[in-house]
């Protein structure tokens, strides 16, 4: 017989239910490293209340913050990629798609909504970074092109909020063609003389920057956003030297004449509304031809 015996039941390991009470309540700021209460952060449009670092937003939250009362009609939500190249590397593209669809609850990396900003009708597209880095394949290309086609047909302004690493490698040359398709659609959109505002958020690089993101009547960006053509690592490898501090940030682009303004998230909706007014977005009378 043992000398010592456990008289009490061992301590219960915390169940999932119990853990949920503490998990996710706090979040560390990527910039100032302060621990923030998540609710505070959410109330502040996902901007750090201490250092104003702009966290990435989901496409859902972005459209909700832009449209009046968070209400909008979503277009082409069911569109998905048929994996045109049958792309398989260490993992199949199909599996990557399925995983991203589960995480985001979306079919691909952009959400298109039609709704109102301060009573003015428009179409807004928001890219979803959690979906394979917000990369642009045929679905993103086609959804944005259709949004432009709708804007042409209904004479509506367009807002695109970019958050994307660029063209989607797993759709190869098909994804490169989206740059051309979207840009050509924007050329047609010029004819109806309705505003297109491009909002660049962290990060906006590669094929996204080299097409619609740089083609707005107004190009604006959120503070601190990384914006560029080539990624910083690619440039460092090419030129074999360290990049200067602040290179490819929104502030750097503003200084080099690539942006109209840097607009903090908290002011974004007001800024859009005001500039849309200047460009006659909702005017019943047609601009002079």
């Amino acid at each position: 017989m043992a000398w010592f015996r456990k008289e009490k039941k061992p301590l219960e390991s915390p169940t999932a239910e119990k853990r949920a009470q503490t998990e996710g309540l706090w979040i560390k700021c990527e910039s100032c490293k302060r621990i923030l209460w998540k609710k505070d952060l959410e109330q502040n449009l996902l901007c750090c209340p201490k250092c104003n670092f702009h966290f990435k937003m989901t496409s859902e939250a972005r459209l909700a913050m832009l449209f009046d009362d968070g209400k909008y009609t979503e277009h082409d939500a069911g569109m998905s990629s048929p994996d045109p190249l049958k792309f398989v590397d260490r993992k199949s593209y199909r599996d990557r798609l399925t995983a991203a669809q589960i995480v985001t609850g979306a079919k691909d990396a952009v959400r298109v909504g039609e709704g109102k900003i301060d009573g003015k009708s428009l179409i807004a597209c928001a890219m979803e970074f959690r979906f394979i880095g917000g990369s642009m394949g045929a679905v993103v290309g086609e959804k944005i092109t259709r949004a432009i086609d709708r804007c042409i047909e209904k004479e509506l302004p367009l807002v695109v909020v970019s958050c994307s690493g660029g063209a989607r490698m797993m759709e190869g040359i098909i994804s490169l063609m989206q740059l051309s398709k979207i840009s050509a659609a924007l050329a047609r959109f010029d004819e109806v003389r309705k505003p297109y505002i491009s909002v660049m958020t962290n990060p906006t690089t590669g094929g996204t920057t080299a097409s619609f993101a740089m083609l707005g009547d107004l190009n604006i960006a959120e503070p601190g956003a990384l914006i560029g053509f080539a990624g910083p690592r690619v440039i460092e490898q090419t030129i074999r030297q360290k990049l200067p501090e602040g290179f490819q940030t929104a502030e750097f682009l503003l200084q080099h004449g690539m942006l109209d303004a840097i607009v903090p998230r908290v002011d974004l909706k007001t800024y859009l509304s005001k500039t849309l007014d200047f460009m006659g977005a909702w005017n019943a009378s047609k601009p002079r031809k």
């Binding site: 082409d76 069911g78 569109m79 998905s80 990629s81 048929p82 045109p84 045929a138 679905v139 290309g141 086609e142 092109t145 759709e171 040359i173 098909i174 994804s175 490169l176 063609m177 989206q178 051309s180 398709k181 050509a184 659609a185 047609r188």
Partner: peptide, 14 residues
Amino acid sequence: NERLRALGTLVHES
């Protein structure tokens, strides 16, 4: 324009 509009439109709709 027709050619450009049709570029790489390989999508699935449901």
